[in-house]
Design a protein around this nucleic acid. Structure first.
Lengths: 154, 154
DNA sequence: GCAGCGATGTTATAACATCGCATATCCGCC
DNA sequence: GGCGGATATGCGATGTTATAACATCGCTGC
């Protein structure tokens, strides 16, 4: 039972473990931020995150949030979506392959697309021009199914 | 002779013509902004653009620049690179297919990659998940050849 | 003239992100 | 136990990016 809750808890445990392996530590603040990211799969803005944080931690300030986010991104546990200034949790524990993020311009939601063929194809194109893919984030602006169907669903 | 200069001039003429076709007009301000974009193929930030603008147009303000940029983007003459808050001119007159931008995290440079196969593959993946590609901009963080070679070239 | 309209000017402010420095906390070491 | 360094946090100010809101200008058609 209690699927969501225990899923999130397990994910946090895994995240903590993977940090430990690297000699980093998932402190209380970072853990809270990561938990909030897990709770908002469509992505969340730094200042909305800050507002949430203040409910349990009244003295939270912008640096509190940004430092935690920077840490999580460094650890590969989260990503930043540049276009929308949105942050999302990474879906796969050890982002083995780069991720494609679909950012919906209508509702600002972010979903992650995993498509190995896509990634392979990308790599080939990049290699051909001498580029090297370095960040595991590929952002694509695309209208999400809800907004395609409902014409404004958020 | 005089390759660059006349190239830019020709590009501006083409841009003006394509605006006219749509009932839009490439005014002096917009033309200046576009010219500046042509001169900085690796992309430029809005406030740097503003600074440039002020040299010939002392009263330029943020909205001056942002409105011109919005217009150029609407007309498909420019793109915004979300991750870096960078603006670049579009390379192909009438962006028939979406563009792939390679953003170098080392030097912040932007290059545009045209790869029809890539785009086809992308479309297929998106369609499979119910998404619809709406913006002609796809940003990919990738180290550019110079930085791959030189280990910090900017 | 003057209404209508798109473009521009101008001021202020919203939204996003970082700096700099002081303090606290953890951990290994003596 | 106490010291010292590294890491994390608190906190205020500041820097950077973008838009809101409203006034004005200049053209075009009537």
């Amino acid at each position: 039972m209690n699927s969501d809750l225990s899923d999130a808890t397990q994910a946090l445990e895994r995240a903590a473990a993977s940090c430990r392996e690297r000699g980093a530590s998932l402190t209380a603040i970072r853990r809270e931020v990561l938990a909030l990211l897990y709770r908002t799969p469509k992505g969340i803005k730094a200042y909305d995150l800050l507002e949430q944080m203040r409910q349990t931690r009244g003295n939270a300030s912008p640096p509190t949030v940004y430092r935690a986010l920077d840490f999580l991104i460094e650890q590969g546990l989260a990503h930043k979506i540049g276009r929308m200034n949105l942050f999302v949790a990474c879906r796969h524990g050890a982002h083995s392959s780069p991720s494609l993020f679909l950012v919906c311009p209508k509702c600002n939601g972010v979903t992650e697309l995993e498509d190995p063929d896509m990634v392979t194809s990308l790599y080939a194109s990049l290699a051909a021009t001498g580029h090297r893919l370095d960040s595991p984030e590929v952002e694509i602006s695309a209208v999400c199914p809800q907004c395609v169907a409902g014409r404004e669903a958020a």
